[in-house]
């Protein structure tokens, strides 16, 4: 795959998703990678994911981020 087909995404993890991983990391993916694939790439089970946001907007697991996007991945959490 040519280098120009790859995009860079800032991935942010929260709560226990950070354990043995990271808080924030820039990662390269082929264009057209879905949020679900990015989650799987981290070794996270999508069923454990509660909320995902691209650039602070809620998104679905089928959405495709573009070059420079920030993707935030949260487990199922709550408070109040």
């Amino acid at each position: 795959m040519a280098a120009e087909d790859r995009i860079s995404i800032t991935v942010k993890l929260f709560a226990f998703f950070r354990d043995n991983r990271f808080k924030k990391q820039e990662q390269q993916f082929p264009a057209n990678t879905t949020v679900r694939d990015i989650i799987l790439f981290q070794g996270i089970n999508p069923e454990e994911v509660g909320v995902t946001m691209i650039n602070s907007r809620q998104c679905t697991l089928d959405q495709i981020p573009v070059q420079g996007d920030q993707l935030a991945i949260f487990p199922i959490i709550g408070g109040g």
Partner: peptide
């Protein structure tokens, strides 16, 4: 605790 919300509400 409920403070788990700081980061998600900030992100939103």
């Amino acid at each position: 605790g409920t403070n788990v919300l700081v980061n998600i509400i900030n992100e939103a």
